[in-house]
Nucleic acid binder design. Sequence first.
RNA 1: GCCGCUAUCGUCUAGAGGCCUAGGACACAGCCCUCUCAAGGCUGGAACACGGGUUCGAAUCCCGUUAGCGGUACCA
Length: 507
Amino acid sequence: MKSSIEGSNPSDSVPPTGELGTKAPRSPFRFPTPSRPMPAVRVRFAPSPTGYLHVGGARTALFNWLYARKTGGTMVLRIEDTDQERSTEAHTQVILDGLTWLGITWDEGPYFQAEAGPKHKADAEQLLGEGKAYRCFCTKAELDAAREAAERAKSSFRYDGRCGRLSAAEVQGRLDRGEPFSVRLRMPDEEIAWEDAVHGRISFQGRDLDDFIILRSDGTPIYNLAVVSDDIAMRITHVIRGDDHVSNTPKQIALYRAFGQPTPVFAHVPMILGNDGKKLSKRHGATAVGDYQNQGILPLAMRNFLALLGWSPGGDREVLPEPEMIALFSLEGIQKKAAVFDTTKLEWMNGQYLSALPAADLLPPVTRHLAEVGVSTEGRDLAALVDAVKVRSRTLLDIAHQVAVRVDGSRVTRDAKGDALVAKLGDAFPGNLRLVLGVLEGAEWTAPALEAAVKALAEAEGKKLGDLMQPIRVALTGGTVSEPVNELLAVVGRDESLARIRRAAGL
RNA sequence: GCCGCUAUCGUCUAGAGGCCUAGGACACAGCCCUCUCAAGGCUGGAACACGGGUUCGAAUCCCGUUAGCGGUACCA
């Protein structure tokens, strides 16, 4: 569970200059010191606290974390709470808890973006002073009207940069009159391209982008400015984030250029889809990490499953212990295509962990789930109970349910298959149970002895072993599925087992 | 509309020009094991979106088509 930073290999790190292919004239001093030491990797996970921790966000966090651990770099956590309307402290806590649950740790932060407001504003003013940005006096209403008109005329709207051509005197005049203004970045007419670590080269043309707003008329920053300003300040070298940000990237690169800063390496990871191929959302069921925790998924299994969703270690590996996951991780191994979230495979993965983990590791969550359903295991060997049922379980909830049935006779309810067996055996059902009772009452209550006793009975009576064992199983659990019957008897205990058999036999 | 991204079994993926008669995993079906189920083992069905190139040779490279997704805000 503890992350192993030791053994990670920093030689895998990539120099953080992903930008390339600019058609604009290049400065000969662009790469002044080729021999400069390679900066240490710094990545960040930057969620917005406007809801729970979504599985997509969790996976983005996981990839950042894996990359940091792999390269010996630093993981910083930044809460992007500039949307004061929707951001809440409770959401922040849920996100932090979700990451912690998954075993995703961070080395710096959490930083809160809203606290950097004054710096964002100062950065915008710096650009204003250098003529790389300009004041725009167009109002929201005017802009909306223009956009609507363009839409009606079936042509595309792009801000024409008219305020960028205002004379100094004109600007001063409007300022003197106290007109409100936003700040826009001058978008240069040049190619903006970068070598994306997962997609390869991606290219946009500056002329296709308009002079976008970086500072609202109330002086607060727009997302793209805040992100770039913070990423520069935090010396982020690798931006690993969702695919939905690729169209923001050229705008952000324009900002890096305006600030005269090198761009980080960008790695855009694909989306996670629901089973209908649409973006994963609430109507697909559980999308919050916390939901899976409540459904009895182990954090290790969740993390393993998430890692394999959109990333492949390259071979046929499925169950990956943490050290291997870190050692094998690479940005190049990330898939370009969106992936469908397959709950069935998640549960299979969870079953793998359930089977492999010692019962002791499962005790705390199982105890919690048992408490939720009101079952006490006071004075019982819970580890033995868990061991008895865990290989047949896919979730911790399954385990808790099965343990509950073994501990508390009042929870035995006959299921459809149990009913079918009773119907099939007819009189032999109570009859065989009475026979069994006869030998069990005098038997030594250990699994091997119980097995021997029932087998001897079957032989003596000329009955099939299954016709003796299955009724016991139904008597003790209500169903036809369980661990071997002798072990079941041992786990349920002598008095309780005999009582359940008597009841089922109608005695 | 415009800009960008993507395209291998139902799903997750391997595959970086010949090793591909396209491999593995989940799911599904059958068999084995067995007191049931699970696990495990074996077997089976199941995919390179389409069309053009390039090449002695293409799932792999190029172009186009189609489809899906993302963006196109004084949201993040």
